[in-house]
Design a binder for these strands. Structure first.
Length: 316
DNA sequence: AAGTCGTGCAACCGCAAGAAA
DNA sequence: CTTTCTTGCGGTTGCACGACT
């Protein structure tokens, strides 16, 4: 593209932030809000690039961030979600209010991953590693035998994994029944609430829900809405939606109460990209909504988007 | 006391998605 | 439709600090 990324420009300071810099950034964001990070450094009087400012704000300065040790509940949640989703830190973080994806990623890499390996479990699949693979993870036979004596812990991990898998397959079963024209809503934390959550940004008097939504519709049925869920998949594909269908679906979404939106479906959140692709391939489907927008007066809008090919997860 | 090693975490980097022009 | 810009994500790096020798 030939453009200069902000952090490539010389003259920007790098490294740890000083308290003075933190104060400047904090004062600026409190006064003007965040967004357009590129212009923030100049306006805030900082010699940092916008990206660095954004990161500092998101990972450290934001007032609702919880720091310190992870509770056993949080630990359990991370294990379960990781077993299902893999390294989808942002999605995992969405299930742990006040925790940042960076913090969860660090916690995983420095703590949970090592515990798994010590127990002889594959950190990717959470399943037992074959004995001759132990050295791949730098675990010798001595250590293995030491850890396998603690079968309780291994069993706990296995339970967490199975629980997560069961949850995932249940969601798929529900999803396959998408020809039934009902909304499937399950509890999800409050990230869809247009308050001060991580997933929202406020811009031009509009609250954007940054979590994508999938809205599957079966054209053979009178009701356009069969499943309604959220995901964060990327998109590509070829699904044409007529203006009529779009209007019907938009009306349907607009008629949802805020609290219904707030408890949006979890199904695709925890299903793998592959299973979603498989699911959508087999259906008379449908199309994808990228986001719901709450305007000031509470009116909801939706934005269209094409079907996902999961580029990020496939490429990395 | 000095040097080395291991660990935890903040910060950086490259890339991609999505919005805006 | 294309280009440009901003934002977000996940992998990786490097520094600070404590434990150990």
């Amino acid at each position: 593209m030939g453009k200069m990324r902000c952090c490539e420009k010389v003259g920007f300071k790098k490294g740890p932030w000083t308290p003075e810099e933190d104060n400047k950034l904090l004062a600026y964001v409190e006064k003007h809000g965040h967004g357009n990070w590129r212009s923030v450094p100049a306006k805030a009087g900082l010699e940092r690039c916008g990206k660095s400012c954004r990161l500092r704000w998101i990972n450290y300065l934001k007032p609702d961030i919880k720091r310190g040790n992870f509770s056993s509940d949080e630990d359990h949640t991370i294990i379960q979600l990781h077993a299902l989703l893999g390294n989808k830190w942002s999605i995992i973080a969405a299930h742990l209010p006040q925790r940042t994806d960076n913090e969860i990623k660090n916690y995983w890499n420095t703590n949970i991953k090592k515990r798994l390996i010590r127990m002889g479990l594959d950190p990717l699949t959470h399943k037992p590693i074959k004995r001759n693979n132990f050295e791949d993870y730098g675990v010798g036979h001595h250590e293995q035998s030491k850890d396998t004596t603690n079968m309780d812990h291994v069993a706990q991990w296995e339970n967490a994994r199975l629980e997560a898998e069961a949850r995932g397959s249940m969601l798929q079963v529900e999803s396959h029944s998408s020809h039934h024209p009902q909304l499937m809503l399950t509890k999800i934390p409050t990230q869809l609430s247009p308050s001060s959550s991580d997933s929202l940004s406020i811009k031009h008097n509009t609250v954007y829900n940054m979590y994508d939504l999938i809205l599957a519709t079966n054209h053979d049925l009178p009701s356009p809405v069969s499943t309604f869920s959220r995901t964060s998949l990327s998109s590509e594909g070829d699904f044409n939606v007529s203006e009529t269908s779009f209007q019907i679906i938009q009306d349907r979404v607009s008629n949802l109460q805020d609290d219904e939106i707030t408890v949006a479906v979890e199904a695709f959140t925890t299903a793998s990209c592959e299973s979603i692709q498989e699911l959508l391939r087999g259906s008379t489907l449908t199309w994808v909504i990228s986001k719901v927008i709450w305007k000031e007066n509470g009116v909801k809008e939706i934005k269209r988007r094409k079907f996902p090919e999961c580029r990020r997860s496939a490429g990395k």
